[in-house]
Amino acid sequence: MMSGRVIETRKATKHYVMGDLVVKALRGVDLTVTRGEFVAIMGASGSGKSTLLNVIGCLDEPTSGTYLLDGVDTSHFTRDEYAEVRNQQIGFVFQTFNLLPRTTALDNVELPLFYDRSGRFPDPKAAAVASLERVGLGDRMHHDPSELSGGERQRVALARALVNNPSIILADEPTGNLDSRTSVDVMSVFQELNEQGITILLVTHEPEIAQYAKRIVVMRDGIIVSDRQVWDRRSAARDLESMPSADEPVELEAQRE
């Protein structure tokens, strides 16, 4: 199982019924991801990339087709079994961070362990501290999200995704709300985690962010239209060194949105 297929969708479809209208968000997706991969899923909005990520993350069920997670068919899972999978095998990172407000970074990171029934974490607090240190936030753990910068919030979210030792981390536009320097900074954390053997699936519409992945899957209208390895892969850590740091004067033109 170790080197096997972590994610395998076969002819996965997802249809949403909105009144009289049926929206076909996924129209037969075959995607296989093996352990240790770093996949960027790209596509215009409405291409179905987020829906695919939700199906893979067991947040949503496919309408038809099968989805095997670690070789286990999830199509007949109950609501509780999906919750169990999310709790034990998957870590999520969202564009809007989705941290609990008025709750310290440490408590936010500890949250998934509240719902852990496996007994793997006899000391949840220590696990949460370790996870925060892993993303370089060991000194900010008693701060509320409102006291943290965007990059720091996304690091807290990453620490939360990591805390249960998931086999996969799923990230939906994790740099969408960050400026370019912070984006690269966060990507360097993703790359580092991938180096440590964690499988990462990342949805983005920014080609320069996708360049940090090992493989790029492009979707359009609910199907995969291109799937290729990245030849000219960039290192976020190296890019960061060549970027102007936050306290250097920035030219006015660069701030134009």
Partner: peptide
Amino acid sequence: TREIGIRLAVGARSSD
């Protein structure tokens, strides 16, 4: 609602 969504996403069951 968002808080509930976050809790569900990190693995809370409906019963939780």
